[in-house]
């Protein structure tokens, strides 16, 4: 099935979770914050957060700033 990650279509496993998607994208956990359809998914809830076709995932990280 297809989900949208930061506006890009990405192939995800059926019944996959946020955690398995990040693993597949080789994104290390704690450095990235995740919104699923606009809602924050805490790191501890990533394995239990199931994905559905068309879900919108947004990934954020820290950058330099004042």
């Amino acid at each position: 099935m297809e989900v949208i990650v930061n506006d890009m279509p990405v192939e995800a496993a059926q019944d996959g979770s946020v955690a398995t998607l990040l693993e597949k994208m080789r994104i290390s956990g704690p450095a990235v914050a995740v919104l699923l359809n606009g809602e924050l998914v805490p790191a501890a809830a990533r394995a239990s957060s199931r994905l559905c076709e068309g879900d919108r995932i947004e990934l954020f990280r820290f950058v330099a700033g004042g």
Binding site: V5, N6, D7, M8, V10, M25, I27, V32, A33, E58, L59, F60, R61, F62, V63, A64, G65, G66
Partner: peptide
């Protein structure tokens, strides 16, 4: 620090 969306992938 600031926050930004990851560039695609």
């Amino acid at each position: 620090v600031a926050l930004r969306r990851l560039a695609g992938g």
